[in-house]
Simulated assay, not measured.
Amino acid sequence: MKFFVEKMSLGFCGFFGRHFCQVMRQNFAQSCEKKLNDQINMELKACHQYLAMAYHFDRADISSPGMHKFFIQASAEEREHAEKIMKYMNKRGGAIILSSVPEPIPCFQSSLAALKHALQMEMEVNQHLLDLHTLAGKESDPNLCDFIEANFLQEQVDGQKVLADYIRQLERAQNEVGDYLFDKYMGATSGMHGDK
């Protein structure tokens, strides 16, 4: 009876659900689980930062609807990535651990500065994915390797190329008219990763 009461205090779903996850878990190293949790939190941090960037460009004194639209789409994509990894974690029997999201940078001096910051973030996220893929290989986890390859690696490279192109285009158009025209162009694009 004491065992049952202790387990009920943990919550029916908490104890029995977690127990089932452990039963179904196969070839999923704790190091990979930890690294996946880190990746989830990186994606959510990027989502939060892109959201802050989007609404910076929506301010009346900035008024860049194209940049606003671009960063809103980027924020949604990062959240999608985090959710995709969380669903995968549940399939593998892992425990999802969300950490607090750091405060984002609230404003940027220019569109160019924001795009350079976005490229830096994307490169950090990509490096973490590459490290995760390497770890999965060392842990002999082909399923995790396949998941990363199929869902993230090419998309990251494509997104980095788009950002690098935008940065170069904006560098060449550095005056108010050029900035205005670039923003109009951004409003007509379909985001970092195109239409899905």
Results as ranks from 00 to 15, higher is better:
115 L>I: 07
126 N>W: 04
96 I>Q: 01
145 C>M: 13
109 Q>L: 14
161 K>F: 13
148 I>W: 04
113 A>E: 04
90 N>H: 11
101 V>F: 10
164 A>L: 06
146 D>R: 11
166 Y>P: 08
91 K>T: 11
176 E>W: 14
145 C>F: 08
144 L>R: 07
126 N>Y: 04
100 S>P: 08
121 M>G: 06
91 K>I: 07
113 A>R: 10
118 A>L: 01
165 D>C: 15
114 A>Q: 00
157 V>T: 01
127 Q>F: 00
154 Q>F: 05
96 I>E: 01
143 N>Q: 12
98 L>P: 00
105 I>W: 09
143 N>V: 15
176 E>R: 13
161 K>H: 11
158 D>F: 05
138 K>F: 08
118 A>C: 10
167 I>V: 06
168 R>G: 09
119 L>H: 00
172 R>W: 09
121 M>S: 10
157 V>G: 06
108 F>K: 01
135 L>C: 01
162 V>L: 12
160 Q>G: 07
149 E>D: 08
130 L>S: 01
140 S>K: 10
156 Q>F: 09
167 I>Q: 02
95 A>P: 09
129 L>M: 00
121 M>P: 02
112 L>V: 05
120 Q>E: 14
143 N>Y: 11
176 E>P: 10
164 A>C: 02
134 T>F: 04
167 I>P: 02
107 C>Y: 14
97 I>C: 07
161 K>M: 09
125 V>I: 13
94 G>K: 08
162 V>Q: 11
151 N>L: 00
94 G>V: 09
138 K>L: 14
102 P>M: 06
139 E>S: 11
125 V>R: 12
142 P>M: 06
104 P>G: 12
173 A>C: 06
116 K>M: 11
135 L>T: 03
168 R>T: 14
152 F>N: 03
145 C>A: 11
121 M>W: 05
150 A>P: 01
147 F>H: 01
136 A>H: 03
117 H>C: 15
142 P>Q: 07
172 R>T: 10
157 V>S: 06
93 G>H: 03
117 H>F: 14
118 A>S: 07
175 N>L: 03
125 V>P: 08
101 V>K: 04
110 S>W: 02
102 P>A: 05
104 P>W: 14
138 K>V: 07
104 P>R: 13
122 E>R: 02
106 P>M: 08
109 Q>A: 15
93 G>K: 03
154 Q>N: 12
137 G>C: 08
120 Q>D: 09
94 G>F: 07
156 Q>K: 09
169 Q>I: 07
107 C>T: 12
114 A>Y: 00
124 E>G: 13
146 D>S: 10
163 L>R: 04
161 K>L: 10
164 A>Y: 05
106 P>A: 08
115 L>P: 01
138 K>N: 13
93 G>E: 00
111 S>K: 11
119 L>Q: 03
168 R>P: 00
118 A>T: 06
131 D>T: 09
126 N>K: 05
144 L>P: 00
97 I>V: 15
